[in-house]
């Protein structure tokens, strides 16, 4: 049986190779063997470079018809209060030139405070919370800002290897102004002791790049007698029509 020590050794070897390479990788690797499920699910050929055209330079539009104002509060979806630490998570969605992504859809989903998902295949023997579903949506405002009220999710075990645990995270799904900016990622919480052990987090081999997935605790977001607050800003790739040079300016 593969142990955490085996996985940690693989992570360390890749990390050393990356450090020795002298290159900078800003994204996530598709081919990251310590995450066992990626072995047969990553392409082996390089993607073909194309100029985005027509439809790819636009995104679908979402509006008030799609998302109700209460859908951003994951603590009021059932008749009672969910268990756990009530938190607020807020931030801005911009493109890599700093332009806000306005009136665009943000979707989140997560485990409950005990680390259990409302999903029939989640077998983690932690209790379901009848008052917590764990999915929310909102539209960004004119400044590109989003805000969710939720419960801090717990870490949870998974079967990548023996005694594998995911650091606590919230899944985020984002749209930009172009189809090509589509992003699905995960937001983590500061100081999680499981970061070093987790092959999904570590699949972003550059330490600074993966830190961009970690929210910061923000006392200005925290509300007295109500909830603690986290801030997490999201930067989508540049929209088509933005010259590459500007991204590095």
């Amino acid at each position: 049986m593969t142990t955490q020590a085996d996985i940690s050794a693989e992570i360390a070897a890749i990390s050393e190779q990356y450090a020795a390479s002298g290159t900078t990788e800003n994204g996530v690797r598709l081919d990251y063997p310590p995450y066992r499920s990626s072995l047969l699910r990553h392409p082996t050929k390089s993607p073909v470079q194309v100029d985005p055209e027509g439809i790819e330079r636009w995104s679908p539009v979402f509006g008030e018809r799609d998302v109700g104002p209460l859908e951003s509060d994951l603590t009021i979806q059932r008749s009672g209060e969910p268990l756990g630490e009530r938190i607020k998570v807020t931030g801005r969605v911009t493109d890599s030139d700093g332009r806000p992504v306005r009136r665009q859809l943000v979707e989140i989903w997560q485990a409950n405070a005990g680390g259990r998902y409302v999903h029939q295949r989640d077998q983690h023997p932690a209790p379901l919370d009848p008052n917590f579903i764990g999915m929310g949506r909102c539209l960004t405002d004119d400044d590109g800002s989003y805000v969710f009220t939720t419960i801090k999710p717990g870490p949870y075990p998974w079967r990548n290897h023996h005694n594998a645990w995911r650091p606590a995270h919230i899944h985020f799904s984002l749209f930009g102004t172009d189809f090509t900016q589509r992003l699905v990622t995960q937001m983590y919480f500061p100081g999680d002791p499981l970061f070093a052990l987790d092959p999904i987090y570590q699949s972003i081999v550059d330490p600074k790049a993966r830190e961009r997935l970690v929210a910061t605790y923000d006392h200005d977001v925290t509300e007295a007698e109500w909830c603690t607050g986290y801030r997490w800003d999201i930067v989508l790739s540049g929209a088509a029509g933005t010259p590459l040079e500007e991204e590095h300016a």
Binding site: W109, H171, T185, I204
Partner: peptide
């Protein structure tokens, strides 16, 4: 700097469908 992606994971159905 752009925000890196991460897998959608196994439990996305209730969040995205």
């Amino acid at each position: 700097m752009t925000t890196p992606g991460q897998t959608v994971g196994p439990f996305f159905a209730f969040g995205l469908e």
